[in-house]
Design a protein around this nucleic acid. Structure first.
Lengths: 257, 257
DNA sequence: TACTTTTGTTTGATATTAGAACATAAAATT
DNA sequence: AATTTTATGTTCTAATATCAAACAAAAGTA
């Protein structure tokens, strides 16, 4: 099914370079040339040339010539994309209000193949172990936002995408592919979706789509909280109306844009 | 002054590919192959190969095969960097409190050469002058955060960096290089800095550094507002203490990390 | 210290990629 | 509809990039 690409139309050095950038993460903030070579599966010679190139371009820095790390300049890459989403900035204040009112986290995401990708996030809790920040990817099939985003797609396209998805069973509550497909009809009708510990035990969330002035769904927004504080009933009886209210305000603000 | 790099240690296809990603921005959300070639100064053949490569890797998409645009996957690149800054997520709730309390914007940034780069931002106003989002770069010499960040550097290194900087006169209030250098001593002593319409007429801000447990400055945080609402006196008499209070809390939270 | 292992650098043969020129297709203009 | 203009796709040789392997330099270890 994957579109074939002619070998001569593929720039492998670019792929390798991007892989090197992605190789840096929380647990690999600093790496030597050899670390990178191992992690990205390159020869050391190749890893070296790529790192020197990235360093020369200012995406990577090295204090001592041994340990390399990314510079803030890599943000310019990711944020080339975000700057194309003006509604994101616009929605942020409303998301803050919402998070504050209900004292739970509020997030916005878009779909990228079988994952949702966070494009904005507001959390109120200080405890917050580690970061589901902007750019984080989660499997669409187990999240409330994934459900509303898939439900809003052209049914044919959605079916195709779902066909390729893996439906990993992340918790005992994660839906099977068949259950998911059936459930999607409900989501389409009601206009919102819930994930009840389908992604992770202890996490519940409810999501709505956000539409542009033409009615096209451009993102999803959700409220999520810990099951110990948030019952299923809370989600539907208390949070849904708050969420809908903010969505309405965001969509209204979107008209004058 | 620029470090020389041997030609054989530079991967030009990687540079070109990164330039292509950066070519997409708010005013160029969608581009044809030829648009890209023109903007990045590539041959069409080359632009084509790079776009097909990026598409194959999922960083770029094209609905019709003509117009290309970035996908959320490019966020993974920037996210590689942000995930290496755990203090960022940790500080966000405090920044939200601060922005809420004083009803003005609050931002966090780090230095990248002669620019500051936003790594977190909270704004309360809905009116939105539009997006100084994460990843935005501003010239360090005209910003309060740039001042505290430069003031916290090793003086030799700072001097070297300042020597290379251009000190563009963005408003009549922008400091000259000499005035800036002198002013930096004051900033070093007092531990905070102001920018009074030095970046843009009508914008005032005050900034403090944030230090890790070893006392090393890892970022700057500021409050900024419009001159019509925020006087210079407000900044020092009202906002400085609020800012310091949050910085203290953030630094305290940083200890248990 | 000397020995071993790991890491970084260089080199020359092979494979990939770029650019120029040309071919085709689509859009715009008449 | 025909013509012109512009954009896109293809091909082929020159220029680049890769690999493997040898070499050099550090960093560990005994």
């Amino acid at each position: 099914m994957n579109k074939e690409i002619k070998k001569s139309d593929f720039v492998q050095s670019l792929e390798k370079g991007l892989n090197v950038i992605n190789a840096f993460d929380m647990d690999h903030e600093q790496m030597t040339l050899s670390d990178v070579a191992k992690k990205v599966d390159l020869t050391r010679a190749n890893a070296r040339r790529i790192l020197l190139t990235l360093q020369h371009l200012g995406y990577v820095t090295s204090l001592d010539g041994k340990l390399f790390s990314l510079t803030p300049k890599v943000l310019s890459l990711g944020y080339s994309y975000l700057s194309g989403l003006p509604f994101r900035e616009l929605a942020q204040p409303y998301m803050q209000e919402l998070a504050k009112e209900i004292n739970e986290s509020c997030s916005m995401s878009v779909l990228d193949n079988s994952d949702i990708v966070y494009i904005a996030r507001v959390h109120t809790k200080r405890i917050m172990t580690i970061s589901l920040g902007v750019g984080t990817r989660l499997p669409a099939h187990a999240t409330s936002m994934g459900k509303v985003l898939l439900a809003s797609m052209d049914p044919m396209e959605a079916a195709k995408l779902i066909g390729q998805m893996k439906f990993e069973e992340l918790t005992p509550f994660t839906l099977s592919k068949n259950a998911f497909i059936q459930h999607l009809d409900v989501v389409r009708k009601q206009g919102w979706a819930i994930s009840d510990q389908e992604l992770e035990i202890g996490v519940r969330s409810i999501a709505c789509p956000i539409r542009d002035k033409k009615g096209k769904v451009i993102a999803a927004i959700n409220i999520s909280g810990h099951a110990s504080r948030v019952t299923l009933e809370d989600l539907v009886k208390k949070y849904l109306s708050a969420l809908k209210d903010k969505v309405e305000k965001i969509e209204h603000a979107l008209i004058n844009l």
